[in-house]
Structures are given as structure tokens and as C-alpha cells.
Design a protein around this nucleic acid. Structure first.
Lengths: 212, 212, 212, 212
DNA sequence: AATGAATGAGCATTCATTCAT
DNA sequence: TATGAATGAATGCTCATTCAT
């Protein structure tokens, strides 16, 4: 019954839902609000989606796909030196923050609302995190293989740590009114942390509990 | 009316709400569920809280206070060397992950559910992030002042970046069935990233776009 | 608009509705179900019928006509003896049960679903009962006139009583998986009751409250 | 959650539903109509019943119990002669028609509306028919055993035939404005048919297809 | 203070019906 | 003539909140 015809109509409903969910929150949004945003009858929404949750799921999937498109745009095996990887990280960071800066709703949906809808959507969000972690791990693994990253790097964990920095930045951008300046500072800070470290030159930070 | 007497009863309601909200999600939880968990009449909840949202707010505040207690347990100005700071970061990390590992509900509430309740709670969550960022910034500022951290460190931004790594770790711990092994790897990865860098020794990662 | 052309199409819609109404019940059946059964667009139904209720009315009318065809097939004035009337009752019973056995839907529609649709359809059903009662009364009246039925017979009431036996049998047949054996036993029981009585020969059953 | 406290309230809801269902039909009746009849909030209905269908089921059960109370009031083994049985049939008939005459809704619910709600309720109605048939069969079996009813009586089938006459009468009473006169004529006709037969004395009705 | 029966606002969802194509 | 996309009235049901006991 659903999954009908006109894909343009379906997309426009997702656009409206994306926007209204982000503005009012999933729970506080009625299907009538979404339909009203488009000036269509609310029954029409049910020609394209099973129910309200189904709309949320589709909104989330589309949002995650957009993020994934940025993350997967680069070739993980292409970099041959630390400098190239550094530049790559900067490019990805720029694109990602550009995405979140251009669509403030995106961050609210992905970082807050849609993960709270139900267990299934939370699980999809988690799965997306895993996928993103695997991508970052591929970059790191390439660097280790090529010899420009530490041989003893815990690649899988570090990948998640790096993603944590990135996504916290995206969350910040989402919350900020004028996100551009923050974006640049954030990328610079992340890149500096990753590639230059925080330590003053000549200082020795290795603790007795550090990586053996 | 309300805002009454027995603080022990109030705490037990918060305990129950903490647990049920995390288990079923805020939206899917009824006040009757919370009261049922305690075996009390659901009208009683309204003697201690204005409404359901008020319960959620108190649950969130208490959760954030517990996290803050860990973050603020250390003295930001006490460290005098990179090694001491490194050890301090490890200590804080351990305590934080211990907290999230001991109470899986905590992470679900803070990272997912309660931020989606309404704008006010989202704002409180954001404010807590800010507070935590200021704490971390104080550590970093101390390090710069003492000379064991880079003088050109973007302290405020880096503080948020560091917190991003930490909290992503806490989120992971929340999602994992046996969180202990993950916790140790995570802290090691974060500390290594911060203090040892990811670069192989001798490699040069400074790109042309990097911090001048 | 409507009340149009192709009578074959109209009949096929009634066939489908007859079947689906009986299978799912009137309330649970959508016009789309009826149209789906035929593989036609559901808008098409509205070219042949005013609305859903109109379809039900037509289905009911057709069902009642089919029953009436059996009831009216015999000539009420043709019988000249008790034996002939007895044989006639058996013939009508056989044909009626054959009809309900051949189309299980018929009974469900007439005895259950369509009478509950609205007051008008209930009224039509009632009117049909009246008509059938008048037919049976005609048979009885003929018997009284010819002298082979009791002169003091309450013809109108007895006609309804007889029809009650008959239609309860049809209802039973409708509910039974293998209706043939039931049919024969039923007709035999009805005929025996009418013509032989239930009393043991020689017994006296006339009570003091009986028909004076 | 339902099945709570105050049984008086529960009964009053059933009374209201009984009345409104009969007046407007099950499908056309909203829970709000039932609640409105009582001047209570419609949410209250849901404290006593799971859902609308559950109300209908309880209404039906109560209606059937009331009918059963009449049917089972007599002792099937008490009668020792045809005259006693005849008197007994008259008594049961009177009480039954009294019941349906006193509460016109009863007939509409049992003979029309509630059987069309869903398969389960139809099944309950059918089961009640079976139960009633077994009672009537017990009366007949007693008569055969005592020797005042024909030894070759098909007891089970005849029981259903007899019930068919009775219930068709109840249905008629339900439809009639002034049911008393009809009631008496009906009982007289049924009793005469059962005990006196329709045949004129001296006539011979045994057909060639009749019971051997 | 504690309770839980009662309430009704609020919303998701269905589906008969219309009408542009 | 046939279609099915679009519509929105209608309603079942939930549950936060109140308040009499």
C-alpha cells in the first residue's frame, strides 16, 4: 500500500519531516505538522510511509547516507605520506563540517532526536558509527602499512577516538550560530592534536602506565 | 503543593526514573511505570515533581552532577609536568569509564534520551558540555602556563576536542556488553594520541595548510 | 454519473463483494478489497454504486432474491393432500439447503453481516422475512382450505414458526463444515415434527393452557 | 490495568453500551457515545475494558447469560408426561418472550449486531446456540426415556429445530412494537405444532420419503 | 501524606469518497 | 470509461495530570 509512485513526493515529505523533526523534536511533531509544512493532506503521508516511525527511519537513513557520502569520498589507500594523510583529514573535516553547517537540522536529528525514537533507530545509528569507524580504521591501517604511522597503533580503537573528535566537532557546529569560525579552529585543533601532539617540544610525556 | 518533605522518597523516585527511562526511553515511559517500579501510587510522584518533564530534568541534572564529580575531582593546577598530566588524564579516564561501566543507564540517558526531551533539557546538556570543556581547558591552560604544553595550543578548542574523545569512549562503553577491555584500550589510545601522536618517529606531518 | 453501462461488470463487483463481505465481514472490508479481488481500480466501483453501503444493499437484495427464487418455485395452491404438502416441504427444504450449502457466504451475509450494516438493510431483511412468511402462509392456507390441515391453525403465526425452523437449519448449514448430512437430518426432523409430531402414539399432550 | 475496582461502574458501562449498541449499531457507536450516555469521561471506559471490542464481548456475554438463565431455570428431567412437558415448554416460552419483550435491545444485540463484530463474537454466539441446543436436547431425551416422546426422535436435530422456532419468535418480538399479543400467538403456535401437529385429524401425511 | 479513579486533550491512523488525468 | 493519488472526517486509544478520599 505504501511505497507508491511519485518519488518526488516521497522526497519532499522526507525534506519536510527532516526540517520539522529537527525544529520541534520527533515526539512533539505530528504527522499533520509534516503534511502542513507541504500543504498536503496528512493522509497523503500514509501513502508513502507506513507510519510516523517509518518516516523517522527514512529521514535518519537519508541523513546517515549524506554523512557517509562525505566520509567515503576519499580513498583510504591513496595516501603515501603523513603530509598527504594530514591533508586528507583536513579535507574530510572541511566537507563534514560544511555539511553540518549547511544543514543545522542534520546534527540535531543525528545527534539527538532520531536516536531516541526507539531501539531500532538507535541501533541504526550505532551501526552507522561502526561503519564510519571502519572507514577511519582503513585510513589508519594504510598509514601503518605505508610506514608513516606508528607500528604499534591500536588502529580500531584510535579510529573511534578520531571519529569522536570529528563528530563532537560536528555536534558543536550544529549548536553554534555562526559555525564557520568554529569549524576552522576545530579542524586545526584536531589535526594539530593528531599530527603535532599537544606536548611542548622536548618535553617527555610517557608515563609509567603508558603504552609499553 | 509538591516540592515536599521526604528527600529519601524523592531520591528513590529519581532512581526508578533513571532506570526506567534508560530501559524504555523517555517517551515510552509513563509516570505509572516509574511509580510501579517503586510500588507506590503514581499520584505520589506528583507530590515530589511538577510533571513528567520535571522528573526527567532532575534525572538529567543528577546524572550530569555525577559526571561532573569525576571531572572536577582532580586539581587542574596541580600538575607540573607532562608526565603528571598524562597520569592525570589516565586517572580521570579510568574513573569516568568506571562510572559509565557501573551504570549503563547513565550513558543512554545522557547521550540519547534526555537530550531529546525538549529544548530546555538539550540546553542543559549543552551547558554541561561547556562546563566540562572549561574544566579541560583549565588543565590545558595550566600546562601551557607551566610550559609543558605547546604555547600555541588553541586551548578552548582543544579542550572540546579532548572531551569529544573522552565522551565518545563513554558512549562506546555504554553500548558494549563487557566494557572493561574496551575501557583500557580506549584510554590507552586517547593518551597515546595526545602524548605520543600517531606519527611514526621521524615522519613529518606538517601540511602546507597546517597551523603556521 | 454512475448507474452506468456494463451490467456484467456490475455483477462481477457484486460477486466479489458477496465473497469478501462474507469472508472478512462488512465493516472490516474496504472498497479497495472488493476492487482488489477483481483486479480493478477501486474508483471504478463508484461508477457502478453510490457508495459502500449501496454495494451491500445490492448484495443483500441479490442474496434475498436467490432465496426467494427457491421459496417461490413451488405452487402454493397445487397440493391437494397432506402427503403432497409433505413432499413439497421436503422439496423446498432440499433446494434451500442446497443453496446455502453451495454458497457458504450466503448464510453469513443474510444471517449475520448485512443485517448489521444499518437500519435500512435490517429493514429489508425484515421485509424479506415477511415475504417468505406470506409464501409459507399461502401453503398453509391452501391446506386448510383443502381440508388436510387443521381448521383452527393460526396460519400467519405458524408460517413464521415453520420458517424459523427452516432458516435456523440454513444457519446451521452455513456454520457446518460438511453440511450434507446435517441437511438431511434437518429436513427429516422438521418434516417429522410438522407431520408426525413429537409425541408417542397414544400419549395425550393437550395441556390445560393449550389452544382451546 | 483494566478489570479494576468498582463493579457498579463496570455494570453501568455495560448497561449503557447495551443500550447504545442496540440503538445505533456497534459500528456506528463510538466509545464516546457510551461514555456520554453515562455522563462520564470516555477515558474512564478504558479503565474497565481493554477496548471497544472488549465492551461488546462483555455485553454479549451478559446478554447470553440472561437468556441462559431462563433456559436453564427448568429441570429437564422433572417432567413425567407429555402434558407436563407441554406446560414446561409454555413456561419457558413465556419467560423468554417476556425477557425479549422487556428489553428490545437484547434481541437486536443477539440476533443482529454483536454477531457481526468479529469472528470471535460470532463464535461465542454459535457456542451459546450449541449450549441452548443441548439443554433442549436434554428435555427431549428425558421425554424419550420416560416414554412420552417418540422413540425414533432425532433428539439432537429436533432440539435445534425447536430452538429455531423459539428464537425466531424472540426475533419477531424484538421487531414488533406491541409484542405481547404476538408472544401469546407464537407460543400457542409452537406448542400446537409440537404437540398437536398441523394435520387435520384422520389425514395421513407420511410421504414416501419420510422417516422409515 | 499517599492514593488511584477519573478525566479529556491530543494524536496516529484508516478508509470512503472525489476527481484530474 | 477507468484509474488511483489525494484528501480529511472520524475515531480508537493513551497517558499526563488532577483531586476527592
Amino acid at each position: 500500500m505504501a511505497r507508491t509512485a511519485d518519488p518526488h513526493r516521497r522526497q519532499s515529505i522526507l525534506d519536510a519531516a527532516h526540517s520539522v523533526f529537527a525544529r520541534k523534536g520527533y515526539a512533539a511533531t505530528g504527522i499533520a505538522d509534516v503534511a502542513g509544512e507541504l500543504g498536503i493532506g496528512h493522509g497523503t503521508v500514509y501513502r508513502y510511509f507506513q507510519n510516523k516511525r517509518d518516516v523517522a527511519a527514512a529521514v535518519l537513513d537519508r541523513a546517515l547516507e549524506r554523512i557517509a557520502a562525505v566520509v567515503t569520498a576519499e580513498d583510504a589507500t591513496a595516501t603515501r605520506s603523513l603530509a598527504e594523510y594530514r591533508a586528507q583529514v583536513e579535507r574530510i573535516g572541511h566537507r563534514l563540517y560544511e555539511l553540518f553547517a549547511a544543514d543545522r537540522a542534520l546534527g540535531r536529528l543525528v545527534f539527538h532526536d532520531l536516536g531516541a525514537v526507539d531501539d531500532d533507530l538507535r541501533e541504526r545509528l550505532h551501526a552507522a558509527h561502526e561503519t564510519f569507524a571502519e572507514y577511519t580504521a582503513a585510513y589508519l591501517r594504510n598509514g601503518v602499512a605505508k610506514g608513516f604511522l606508528r607500528a604499534d597503533l591500536d588502529v580500531d580503537t584510535t579510529a573511534r577516538v578520531v571519529n569522536g573528535m570529528i563528530f563532537e566537532g560536528a555536534a558543536q557546529v550544529t549548536r553554534t550560530d555562526d559555525p564557520r569560525p568554529l569549524r576552522d579552529r576545530w579542524i586545526r585543533a584536531v589535526v594539530a592534536l593528531m599530527f603535532d601532539g599537544i606536548a611542548q617540544h622536548g618535553e617527555l610525556g610517557r608515563s609509567e602506565h603508558g603504552p609499553g
